[in-house]
């Protein structure tokens, strides 16, 4: 691999890694929101059954 090719791979790699990190962060956030929604649904169910 020539030095020019290495620089091109590095530049495209930086963009790829950034997109990947962003997707991982969003996925983690979605998992947290799903957990919170389930907790709230459980709380609402308890409220309705307990009167």
């Amino acid at each position: 691999m020539s030095s020019g090719e290495k620089y091109v791979a590095a530049a495209y790699g930086v963009v790829f890694v950034a997109v990947l990190v962003y997707v991982v962060i969003i996925a983690a956030k979605l998992a947290r929101l799903e957990r919170e929604t389930a907790e709230l649904a459980e709380l609402a169910r308890k409220r309705s059954s307990g009167g």
């Binding site: 020019g4 620089y7 091109v8 590095a10 530049a11 930086v14 963009v15 950034a18």
Partner: peptide, 17 residues
């Protein structure tokens, strides 16, 4: 800001090359 970081990073790599 995220795209700004990428601009600086890719720009620096291109400048070096």
């Amino acid at each position: 800001t995220i795209f700004g970081v990428l601009t600086l990073a890719t720009g620096s790599i291109w400048a070096r090359a």
